[in-house]
Simulated assay, not measured.
Amino acid sequence: MGDSGIGMLLGHLSANLLWLWFIGAFVLGGVLVYGVMKAGRLRRSERAQLDRNTEARQRQEDPYNRAT
């Protein structure tokens, strides 16, 4: 009669796997939040360079459609 709660309902192995799922989801969420925060920040010079590169690529792919 040592089982109680989730352990009694799911068994010891299932309860351990459930905790691993929660821990894994927490870690994955943290990694995603970190990635979104880092990817969302561009310095002004980086943004300008990105815009210039995008315009150059568009001109290269479609030279008849000149951007204004």
Score class of each variant (00 low, 15 high):
residue 39 A to F: 12
residue 61 E to Q: 15
residue 3 D to Y: 11
residue 55 E to K: 14
residue 34 Y to H: 06
residue 67 A to G: 01
residue 12 H to V: 13
residue 39 A to W: 13
residue 5 G to H: 02
residue 60 Q to W: 10
residue 62 D to T: 09
residue 47 R to K: 14
residue 48 A to S: 08
residue 64 Y to S: 10
residue 52 R to P: 00
residue 20 L to R: 08
residue 25 A to E: 09
residue 16 N to G: 03
residue 14 S to T: 01
residue 47 R to Q: 14
residue 11 G to Y: 07
residue 33 V to D: 02
residue 49 Q to Y: 05
residue 41 R to G: 01
residue 22 F to L: 15
residue 8 M to K: 15
residue 65 N to G: 01
residue 51 D to F: 06
residue 55 E to I: 06
residue 39 A to D: 14
residue 16 N to C: 09
residue 60 Q to A: 15
residue 28 L to P: 01
residue 40 G to L: 05
residue 29 G to V: 06
residue 51 D to E: 15
residue 34 Y to C: 05
residue 42 L to I: 04
residue 66 R to F: 04
residue 26 F to R: 07
residue 39 A to C: 03
residue 66 R to H: 07
residue 44 R to F: 12
residue 22 F to V: 11
residue 47 R to A: 15
residue 36 V to Y: 14
residue 15 A to F: 02
residue 24 G to A: 11
residue 37 M to N: 10
residue 48 A to Q: 12
residue 44 R to N: 08
residue 23 I to C: 04
residue 19 W to V: 14
residue 53 N to T: 03
residue 57 R to F: 10
residue 68 T to H: 10
residue 5 G to E: 01
residue 68 T to C: 04
residue 58 Q to E: 10
residue 38 K to Q: 14
residue 35 G to P: 00
residue 29 G to Y: 01
residue 1 M to I: 00
residue 22 F to T: 05
residue 17 L to V: 10
residue 52 R to L: 14
residue 2 G to L: 08
residue 18 L to K: 01
residue 39 A to S: 13
residue 11 G to I: 07
residue 35 G to T: 10
residue 42 L to V: 06
residue 30 G to H: 02
residue 45 S to Y: 05
residue 44 R to V: 13
residue 33 V to Y: 08
residue 5 G to A: 05
residue 23 I to A: 12
residue 10 L to Q: 08
residue 7 G to Y: 08
residue 56 A to N: 10
residue 19 W to E: 13
residue 27 V to Q: 04
residue 18 L to V: 02
residue 39 A to E: 11
residue 43 R to T: 15
residue 57 R to S: 07
residue 12 H to I: 13
residue 52 R to V: 09
residue 65 N to D: 10
residue 41 R to C: 01
residue 27 V to W: 06
residue 65 N to T: 07
residue 25 A to T: 09
residue 42 L to G: 00
residue 56 A to F: 09
residue 54 T to C: 02
residue 48 A to R: 13
residue 4 S to M: 05
residue 26 F to I: 04
